[in-house]
Amino acid sequence: MTQYLTLEFTAMVTGFALMIIGLWGLLTRKNLIKIVIGFAIFDTGLNISIISMSYLKNRTAPIIDKSIDASNTINLFVDPIPQALVLTSIVIGVGVTALMLAYVLRMFREKKSLDINSYTDLKW
């Protein structure tokens, strides 16, 4: 049991829980803005779980300064690659969210409704 009470495991559970909540919101909400919010929550959960994978016990952020022994960095630092990937992922997430909100505004301009059930053009 104690193997599951670590920091990285807790972060990963939190990330997965946020992903499931976001997917639930995506699938069940009727309001377009709330669907976008569900997507943003999914995105956040994904980022948290990627970061939790890069964590190594008792290590510090990969920034070299005076308090770090520069010759022993391989035993002191966490993995910098997932952090760089999440930086990319956050920026892309912002872009996707802005784009979806722009689509929502555009759709609202056409039909004056935010309810997804009033958009039946692609239903058969």
Partner: peptide
Amino acid sequence: ANLVTAVV
């Protein structure tokens, strides 16, 4: 000094 920056 910031290795994340070096990677990015």
